[in-house]
């Protein structure tokens, strides 16, 4: 006699509540993350208390606002693209490009804030459209192309801050003039409004029907007149606009100057946005919540960096949580059955 564990798929109407499963996955993911902390100088205890501090004290929650702003701006657009089956990871490069363009207009040309932010969004649109065009017309895999463009954008930034835009011999630029900056709360509000706007467009216009049908059943979509190219292009452009705008806002509200980045760590929020999008199940409005959560986790890990925990700990924790939550949500579609087997 042998016992075998089997997953039996449930009928669509009998599935478990994905939200409850997701929360359970989140809990397990946090436990595993704390255990992973044992590998760092902070230890399990230090990691646990850092998480407790950030999550337990509501007064700290607002400290995650800068991270939230940047992560949410990329996550919402990525969620839209993923819905269309367009697996881009280019939000990081689009954010950085947005920062570069915004800095150029605000810090060097002397244009107004609105123009700078608009141009930042436009830079994101162009990058997004470039990846979409490579995918649609030259059949280049969008995941690879977008990732590689991220690296290219980062090297453009490094060239600029190390050379023509360098200030005082450092690999960074001069700060923006004070009248070309914004408060973090304002920046976060702009992102919030933009994400809700995209959510509304998804829910109440043809965009939602197009994006979902193209992503789930391309053939059905095309048969009834949804343009595949048009839809992918739209999703890529909207995602690019959000990420580019997010980069511009991060520049004017948080960083206020450009500094060099390494390709590995990069700015990072565009990558976290990928995780936030999956964590939200690609529900655009829900990326607001998942971005906040990932922002808090990032905040916790920055507090750990004092005890020499590498920054990358945040990345690992965020990924662990996504893996557990997504797996748990998938599990809600199954029943677990024990099968007894002779032989």
């Amino acid at each position: 006699m042998k016992l075998r564990v089997k997953l039996v798929e449930r009928a669509p109407t009998e599935r478990g509540n994905p939200l409850l499963y997701g929360l359970a996955g989140l809990a397990v993911g946090i436990v595993v993350s704390v255990l992973l902390g044992g590998l760092t100088p902070a230890g399990v205890g230090g990691t646990a208390s850092a998480l407790m501090t950030v999550f337990g004290e509501p007064s700290r929650w607002l400290s995650a606002l800068p991270y939230f702003t940047a992560i949410a701006a990329s996550a919402a657009g990525l969620a839209l693209a993923y819905r269309a089956g367009f697996i881009t990871i280019g939000a990081e490069g689009q954010m950085v490009a947005g920062m570069i363009v915004a800095y150029w207009l605000l810090g060097r040309v002397g244009a107004g804030l609105a123009a700078g932010l608009f141009a930042a969004a436009l830079a994101g649109v162009l990058l997004g459209a470039l990846v979409a065009a490579l995918r649609l017309y030259l059949l280049v895999n969008e995941t690879l192309a977008s990732l590689m463009l991220n690296y290219v954008v980062v090297s453009v930034l490094n060239y600029l801050v190390g050379g023509p835009w360098s200030a005082g011999g450092f690999t960074r630029t001069a700060p923006l003039p004070p009248d070309r900056t914004l408060g973090v709360a304002t920046a976060a509000t702009i992102v919030l409004a933009t994400v809700l706007l995209v959510e509304a467009a998804y829910r109440f216009t043809r965009l939602g029907v197009a994006v979902d049908s193209v992503g789930l059943s391309r053939r059905a979509a095309e048969t009834y007149g949804v343009g595949f190219h048009k839809t992918i292009m739209a999703a890529a452009a909207i995602g690019g606009a959000l990420a580019g705008l997010g980069g511009g806002l991060y520049l004017v509200a948080v960083q206020q100057q450009l500094t060099s980045l390494n390709t590995f760590q990069s700015l990072g929020y565009g990558y976290m946005g990928i995780l936030a999008a999956w964590l939200a199940g690609n529900v655009i409005a829900a990326t607001l919540a998942s971005s906040w959560l990932l922002g808090l986790l990032y905040l916790a890990s920055t507090s750990l960096q004092i005890s020499r925990v590498p920054w990358s700990f945040a990345l690992a924790v965020q990924a662990i949580i996504v893996v557990f939550v997504v797996s748990a949500v998938t599990l809600s579609r199954y029943r677990i059955v024990l099968v007894r087997e002779s032989q």
Partner: peptide, 13 residues
């Protein structure tokens, strides 16, 4: 994609 971040995060640790 999650494994990219998990792997690079833990790799650095």
């Amino acid at each position: 994609l999650s494994l990219v971040f998990l792997g690079s995060g833990v790799g650095v640790i």
